[in-house]
């Protein structure tokens, strides 16, 4: 199993799928000649040419719609939206066309299209380049939403998303493209549904996805070493549908839950996970579930303020200690 960076894993998935099927194409701003802002399509333009690796104009809603229209005829476009903040402009086509066409045509048309886009707080990108929007996508019927927390998932989720007949939104993170991790040498398809236990534990379940899985892992380490608390880290790589059974199983064992996300608390991923905890785990819980989210402000530019906005492993440790009456 080779070590590979997150962006390299995504690039490899593109390359394999495009080599296999001439109807797999990719499109987006600067993805061709320039090789992609985060290098996820590096070298593909030279290999597959401009008809299949399309540098689009800066017209998010319409190039997204164009990809969706092509998918009605069996083309499998992988559409990169350079920053999830720009996806606001494409939501009309994503939601009104891709997510609904199967239903409103009575199953006649389907949109097997993949949207990839990074969100999250990176390095002082300010209010309009730091959005976390997975909360919006996961509430739309007809759309699958996945979010890889490591290179193995980034590779395997894209592979599965390309093959799946449903539209899939892949939520990436701007800070994670250079993260290194093992990726199977053989072709690998990551499940689009479910969750993964990243670290087993018995005292509390830390639920997270994408970058917050890493905060949770670091927190679990500290909780174990310094406080003797055994935390289980669950990776909710599928946000739509959420893995109700996986959440239930972990909390039935630990009886405590902390939900961690980089989005803002109102109507967050955590809001939905806590609703599931109420529905599935109410009598298993020994304490009220807790959520940890970003402050509800447009992301500030100033670095100190920016860091004060988003949670980290320390916020998780503090919340768990409070849950155990140790803080």
């Amino acid at each position: 199993m080779a070590e590979m960076m997150y962006w390299e894993a995504i690039r490899r998935a593109h390359d394999e799928e495009m080599a296999r099927d001439p109807l797999v194409i990719c499109m987006g701003e600067d993805i061709g000649v320039a090789g992609g802002t985060y290098k996820a399509t590096k070298g593909l333009f030279e290999k597959y040419g401009p008809l299949r690796v399309m540098d689009t104009p800066i017209s998010e809603n319409s190039y997204t719609g164009l990809g969706i229209g092509a998918s009605f005829l069996g083309v499998r476009p992988i559409i990169e939206i350079m920053s999830v903040n720009f996806a606001w402009l494409a939501m009309d086509q994503m939601f009104n066309s891709a997510a609904k066409v199967r239903y409103m045509s009575g199953g006649q048309l389907t949109a097997p299209v993949v949207f990839r886009s990074p969100g999250g707080t990176a390095h002082q990108l300010g209010a309009q380049h730091s959005a976390r929007m997975e909360k919006v996508f996961m509430g739309i019927a007809g759309l699958r939403v996945v979010t890889p927390s490591n290179p193995r998932q980034a590779y395997g989720l894209l592979k599965s998303a390309v093959r799946c007949d449903d539209p899939v939104f892949i939520n990436e993170h701007e800070l994670m493209y250079n993260m290194k991790g093992p990726v199977p040498d053989a072709e690998y398809f990551h499940p689009l549904e479910g969750s993964e236990i990243t670290r087993s534990g018995t005292d509390v379940t830390l639920l997270g996805y994408n970058i917050s899985v890493h905060w949770n892992l670091k927190a679990a380490e500290i909780l174990d070493k310094q406080y003797g608390i055994s935390a289980e880290v669950v990776d909710l790589y599928s946000l739509a549908p959420l893995d109700r059974a996986g959440i239930r199983q972990s909390v039935a064992k630990t009886h405590r839950a902390v939900v961690v996300g980089e989005d803002e608390a109102p109507v967050s991923v955590a809001s939905e996970v806590i609703a599931i905890l109420n529905e599935e785990c109410f009598f298993d819980l020994d304490a009220a579930p807790v959520r940890i989210n970003s402050a509800n402000v447009p992301q500030p530019y100033n670095h100190t303020l920016e860091m004060a906005t988003i949670p980290n492993h320390e916020s998780v440790v503090r919340a768990v200690l409070k849950l155990f009456g140790k803080a």
């Binding site: 299949r52 997204t64 998918s71 066309s97």
Partner: peptide
Amino acid sequence: MGGYALVGGPFPLAAGIAKAIQLK
């Protein structure tokens, strides 16, 4: 390929269908 109820929504879908024809 359908009737759509967002005014102007079919423009890019039509171009996409044309793109698929071009590819095939």
